[in-house]
Design a protein around this nucleic acid. Structure first.
Lengths: 336, 336
DNA sequence: GTGAAAGCGCTAACAA
DNA sequence: TTGTTAGCGCTTTCAC
């Protein structure tokens, strides 16, 4: 900046004024400064400015996601980016990979960079470590999974209701022997979906012991093997509820490998590209991750603006999409 | 930091030393400072430090992608993140959406944040605007698409060779009337693939005029409609080369909608989840976007370390994966 | 309308 | 081993 001032033959403060679009500069100097800055290819250093500026905003927020490479997380990311871009706020996105240690590291890194706010998907059972930071004034919003044991806003899918709808759909089509392919029990959303699954069984008077609950299954390959094992076992299920995107893919692989995709009903939680072109099409309870991201971003902006808001958990509804696999009739079709 | 120093009863420099893990601090003071920092929930301000520190690294790099929400881009992102994390460097990822104006804005924003390096996917025909920045010492690497008209390292897929392989595959299986579903001509990778497509036709003595070249097709829906139009027309092709991920999906939709997926051969460029479970499976020339990201990140690190390197374009090979759709025999099967 | 001086939070250089 | 001073690039304050 000193260089620009020297070239333009003005004081640094005038350069600062021009480059920040402040008033009270004559057109002539404004012109000279602009030209000098361009000639020197100079860009303002946002951090140096933020240091002195009162409030010291960095115009950056931290976004912690399961993985930037996961379709669901990436859609959240995009939703957040879209909203934040309108406010010239940059998004620092980091993957935490369902690792509680990594989660702490990522948050710490965000704080060292003095982000103005945080949007977090977490796996920790306890986010008390954030309370102190919040007290210091950092705004925090949780996305996809709510905060536990601490008071923060959250934006989540309607996991319980969606799971209920999926389960009811299978029961309604005549299935009574159901399997829940569930993944990691550490994850709040999956616990919710499992809860919805069993609650709906109860409502229909189907004994929980009649259902096969595959939890603790990890990843696509884990789901694939688990489904094979289950279908090879005694009294296999006639319908499967696959509780998230990787579980759906793994389940599908197993079904297709044994040519059972037209015999075993399947409904997934979370929509995945190309499911509609499979034979049969795969019915799902679709989420709207882009919307989750947008809402979380808007909520965070409101908090950053210090608007007086009630603590809230925003819930984004899910949509049941029938494509065929979920409508394969079960042995009790017509009765229920 | 002053607060920490006060609480610990030491000078600020001692706090700085402890928090930065520098030597020459007695165990006792180190302990006291650590405790005080924890009590106050204090984290170092990386930018304030970087301001004074010689070299003034921010330990951040900028990554510009088509969209953080695109599977191909997201895989690059993950590759970059994986490598950078090992060096405690944070990745600022931004979508530019094939918009040259937005591209400039994003780069400018990165520079205002004084990133240590840039990894860019660009659409501009001219990246001369970066030369001045490079001269100032910012390291830059291009990923997926090479720099044009400026001297930077690039990491790209073997687009031409992959397209040649795909085209040869279709010709080899007896097709002579081919269609190229190409997308945006502004994009270097797509021009390369088109070049490979026609070059291989030449090699086989198939007149270019016998091929149907759909370029300028935008997005999945554009591809879908274009393919419908083409197949409704006179003398429709017996095989299609879909030049990137969204073109594949759009083409597939059209084929499935008219029940032609077993009649018209299809080979795609870039692999997409679930293509193997479709009926027929979709053959593709797969790229390795994660590897692209890793290589770009490693190259950037080497540049940032001021290693003396030749200017280079690294090429990541593609893999032809046969899944059925590309092996549907054409009218000249057995002759080729 | 303009610029000089002080200071944001931190570290380099140096003194104790 | 420890603390003091200056200064990184900028903006605030305030004098002109």
């Amino acid at each position: 900046m000193r260089d620009v001032a020297a070239v333009a033959g003005v004081g640094v403060k005038t350069v600062s004024r021009v480059l920040n679009g402040e008033p009270n500069v004559s057109d002539e100097l404004r012109e000279r400064v602009t030209r000098a800055a361009e000639a020197l290819n100079y860009e303002l250093n946002v951090y140096a400015g933020g240091l002195r500026r009162s409030g010291a905003r960095t115009n950056a927020i931290g976004l912690m996601l399961e993985s930037v490479d996961d379709a669901f997380s990436a859609a959240i990311h995009r939703g957040v980016e879209t909203v934040m871009r309108r406010h010239s706020i940059i998004v620092l996105a980091q993957s935490f990979e369902e690792d509680a240690d990594r989660e702490r590291t990522v948050v710490k890194e965000f704080l060292r960079r003095r982000v103005d706010g945080l949007i977090l998907t977490t796996v920790s059972r306890d986010q008390a470590y954030l309370s102190a930071e919040a007290a210091r004034g950092t705004s925090i919003v949780f996305v996809d999974r709510p905060a536990v044991s601490v008071a923060f806003d959250s934006v989540v899918s309607c996991n319980y209701d969606g799971a209920v709808a999926a389960t009811r759909h299978l029961l309604h089509h005549g299935h009574r022997r159901l399997a829940y392919v569930g993944g990691d029990h550490e994850i709040w959303t999956l616990r919710e979906r499992e809860r919805g699954f069993y609650a709906e069984l109860d409502r229909w008077g189907v004994p929980r012991s009649d259902a096969i609950g595959l939890t603790g299954v990890l990843g696509e390959e884990g789901a694939r093997m688990a489904v094979h094992g289950m279908l090879d076992g005694q009294d296999p299920p006639t319908a499967i509820f696959a509780a998230h995107n990787r579980m759906i893919i793994g389940t599908l692989r197993a079904l297709h490998e044994r040519g059972a995709q037209n015999d075993v009903a399947l409904i997934g939680f979370d929509d995945v590209q190309l499911l509609d072109l499979l034979e049969p099409g795969v019915s799902v309870v679709a989420q709207d991750p882009h919307r989750l991201g947008e809402l979380a971003a808007e909520r965070l902006l409101a908090r950053m603006a210090r608007k007086p808001l009630e603590l809230e958990t925003l819930t984004v509804p899910t949509t049941l999409i029938e494509r065929g696999s979920g409508e394969i009739p079960g042995p009790f079709a017509g009765e229920g």
